[in-house]
Design a protein around this nucleic acid. Structure first.
Lengths: 233, 233
DNA sequence: ATTTACAAGCCGGCTATCCTGTATGTAGAG
DNA sequence: CTCTACATACAGGATAGCCGGCTTGTAAAT
């Protein structure tokens, strides 16, 4: 009987356990990546399901099938995990935009597919998760502070993509290009919120179709400019 | 931890008791109404500022300058208060719609003012508060259950208003009337979220102007129907 | 190549804090 | 005097982050 029994943890002589050789050995980097991947996926799922406020670290860990300890090792705080989610989703969406944007057809055709593309991307749980995080940043100063630069980068990238799309296509350099982008993203986002709340996709698809028609008419110069400034607000 | 400068009102100073004025005697109905009014107003403010998840009964009571006991007396549970907020906002918005909808001009002119009207209404803290409550209902079964009927009534009223507006105006009975309503409400809601997050109103006003132009073009038949069903998704 | 020292991943209990709703007491209206 | 509006203390429950200890990977020393 050593002193260890009486004063646990007092003097630990660094006991080495015989290591068991398991068939499948993974490198530490692999293990970390796997855990992180599972956690980010779970975070997206939970954020989409219950919203930011009700998203607890415990829920995420359970959803991921990962112990709380493991999670806390990879992401010391909740904010760290949330930022990782935003960064990861941004990566994925950027890749998808590139892939499908440069896919086929003329610039005009690609422009016309824009609403569909956005609809596809923004209705995904990952997009809703990011929206939830942004809304949630209102109540968490730390999250807001660290999210801001990321948010700016995403916004700038989005703007650049649309401007390039329009410029390359030789469209009449719409001075309203930016307003258009904002409006269309807002519309699709609003519809995706409806989708999340109402779960009735059919009716919303009609709205997307209408949005496509509006985009086409706008890019073809069929929409006359504003008239008098009749008290815009 | 909390940054009071950036997020005012986040850390509440715990003690705030209203002065009792003896001189002025009010009836009990008046006292109740006053307390309820203050609480609903405070709830809207807090919901708008920090979102549903971070909205606690304590924050609301402090914001209202009312003791927690008084609040619990008027609204026994948080859900009760949330529902009162939704009902109250619905009342107000309905009144405003009626007032300004039936204001002046032809049906066409009133239709053209529709985006401005929605923009005015939906950017208010009260509208964001209701949105927050609806989003929050995902994580609170009790709230969801009791909110559902109210939600249906609001949706039906909104639909009826637009349909009446179009019908009275003798517009070509657009089969897309409902899609249009959905799309426009979604667009304005998306923009109002942007406004809440970015706080840059100018750029968003451009988007609203564009939305008005699109509505006008659509109602004047300048927007051609969809062409081939080129893989709508 | 084996051993050995250490770092990285991981586990689950613990605590301080906060939040909601209840219980109980007090003042004012009717 | 009775009931309503209000105030305060408290209980029960949940959550975020911490910590001691254990397991597995990695690489330097032998």
């Amino acid at each position: 009987m050593t002193d260890e029994a009486v004063f646990p943890g007092m003097s630990r002589p660094r006991v080495r356990r015989p290591r068991r050789t398991i068939a499948e050995r993974r490198t530490q980097a692999e293990r970390s990546a796997e855990t992180q991947r599972k956690l980010i996926e779970a975070a997206i799922t939970v954020l989409h399901r219950v919203g930011y406020g009700a998203t607890t670290t415990g829920l995420i860990a359970d959803e991921a099938g990962v112990s709380r300890g493991a999670m806390l090792h990879q992401y010391p705080t909740k904010v760290d995990l949330m930022l990782a989610v935003v960064a990861e989703v941004y990566e994925r969406e950027t890749a998808e935009y590139r892939r499908r944007g440069a896919e086929t057809g003329s610039t005009r055709e690609r422009l016309y597919r824009f609403p569909d593309l956005m609809w596809d991307l923004l209705t995904r749980p990952s997009a809703m998760a990011v929206l939830e995080i942004m809304m949630g940043s209102r109540s968490d100063p730390e999250l807001a502070k660290r999210l801001a630069p990321l948010q700016r980068r995403i916004e700038a990238a989005s703007r650049a993509t649309v401007e390039r799309l329009l410029k390359e296509g030789g469209f009449p350099d719409l001075p309203e290009a930016n307003a258009m982008r904002r409006l269309f993203v807002a519309a699709v986002r609003g519809l995706s919120i409806d989708l999340m709340l109402l779960k009735d996709r059919a009716e919303l698809d009609d709205a997307i179709q209408l949005l496509k028609r509006l985009l086409r008419a706008l890019s073809e110069g069929l929409v006359p400019p504003a008239e008098e400034t009749s008290d815009s607000r």
